Amino acid sequence: MLQFIKSASNFNGIFFASIALVYLYACNAKANTEGAGAPPPPALPVIALQAQDVNTFQEYTASLEGSEDIEIRPQVDGYLSKIYVDEGAWVKKGTPLFAIDSRRYSEALNNAHASLKQAEANLESADINLGKIEPLVSSNVVSDVQLKTARANRDAAAAAVSQAAAQKEQASINLGYTLIKAPADGYIGRIPYKTGSLVNSSNAQPLTLLSSVKEVYAYFSLSEKEWLQFSQRFPGNTLDAKLKQVPPVELVLADNSVYPQKGRIETVNGVFNNRMGTISLRAVFPNEGGALRSGSTGAVRLPRANDDAVVVPQEATYELQDKVFVFQVSDSNTVTGKAISINAKSGNYYLVNGGVHAGDKIVFAGMGRLQEGARITPEIISLDSILQSNPLSKK
């Protein structure tokens, strides 16, 4: 019995001792928690925005054509007797290109020449006859009717000479058409016909296409909205005056390289394409070296000056519901989300015309950890250092 009481007493002591230990641990944990305090604000890079004069570019898909794309077609019928050039050859104006069998046209010219000689002989005979009759009429040897007949015969003979001369000239022209020459300098296109082919002016395909490419036209289109913005950007009371103010444009080739020579916008189509809602413009580029060919494609790049544009690095932004935001840092180092209005892009930068201003401070990186109204510890980074590593195109 005494042993049982002793065991119970030992159990009660252990129980109360355990409770005391738990209580002391809880008190110490609470004291440690109260003494630790809130974590410090996160340290994040911050930049001060600046205004810059920046040139940006807008690219528009363009098709290239030679300043003169000339269809070479036969003007007389016949068989091709010779082809003097090959596809892709560069030729000068007057270079022989094709020859059509000329034998029947030579014979036609010979016949026309003979007809002219016969008509001239008839005219000479009519002149002689008229010269004999005129004095006889004045002497009343022959009647006046014979004189009028002789004069009419002489006039008919003169008309026959004119007709024969015209026929000879036409025959000579037709013979000349059998040798087809280049009407301008340029490159020879595809030649779908071979020696011996029968050709005529009504063939569906031309003999070839001659592209004069000393200058190349680049045709591109603007939407109605883009055209209004474009035309309002330059001073002038007339369209010609405005086009003279447009700076030189660049041509981006199919391999994304930039053509070394700049061009100019020369003309604008007079009407909009109602189906596409666009208007066509033509830029002209020099092509003395012949690097550009008719039928190729590229993109016309229009420069646009952005004066005093607020520059915002794209990595300092985030998107929410189709809008672009930045975290602006206040004087108390709290952040506020600001929607920005983007006017243009230049490389990895937005050019902003609303939402933030030059001198405002924004968070440059680490936005994924931020919430509206959060406090940060700013670590100032110079925007100039960022622009040096990834520069803008300045005026």
Rank of each mutant, 00 (worst) to 15 (best):
F57W: 11
A38G: 11
Y23M: 03
A20N: 14
F16P: 00
V22W: 03
Q58P: 01
P42Y: 02
E65N: 13
Y25P: 00
Y25M: 09
L24P: 00
Y23P: 00
A51C: 03
A31Y: 12
E59D: 08
P42G: 08
F11H: 14
P42S: 06
A26D: 15
Y60R: 04
N55E: 10
L44I: 10
D53G: 08
Q52A: 09
F15C: 11
A36P: 06
V22L: 09
E68K: 06
P39A: 15
N10M: 13
S63T: 15
D69T: 08
E34R: 08
A36H: 12
N12V: 14
A38V: 09
A38H: 09
P41F: 05
L24N: 03
L21F: 14
I70F: 11
L44A: 02
A62W: 08
C27H: 07
L49S: 01
L49K: 01
G66Y: 09
V22H: 04
N32L: 06
E68V: 02
P42L: 04
E65R: 12
A17S: 14
A36I: 09
N10Y: 14
F15H: 11
A38M: 07
E65S: 14
T56C: 01
G66I: 07
Q58Y: 05
T61A: 02
N12C: 11
P39V: 11
N28C: 07
Q58G: 09
N10A: 13
N10V: 15
P41R: 04
F11Y: 13
E65K: 13
P42N: 07
I47M: 06
T56A: 03
Q52Y: 11
A43C: 00
A17T: 14
N32E: 12
S18C: 15
E68I: 01
I14C: 10
I70A: 12
T61F: 04
P39N: 13
L64C: 01
P41A: 04
D69I: 00
A48M: 08
Y23G: 08
N32P: 05
Y60K: 00
S63Q: 12
A38E: 14
L49C: 02
T33Y: 01
A43E: 07
P42R: 09
D69N: 09
Y60P: 00
F16W: 13
D53K: 07
N28E: 15
L64H: 06
Y60V: 02
T61Q: 06
N28M: 09
A29K: 07
N10T: 15
L44S: 04
A29M: 08
G66D: 12
N32F: 05
A31D: 13
Y23F: 11
A20K: 11
A26K: 10
Y60M: 01
L21S: 15
A62N: 05
A51Q: 02
E65A: 09
T61K: 03
T56W: 02
S63L: 08
E65T: 13
T56E: 10
D69V: 03
S67D: 11
E65G: 10
E59K: 02
A36W: 09
E65D: 12
I47P: 02
I14W: 08
E34P: 04
S67Q: 15
P39Y: 07
F57S: 10
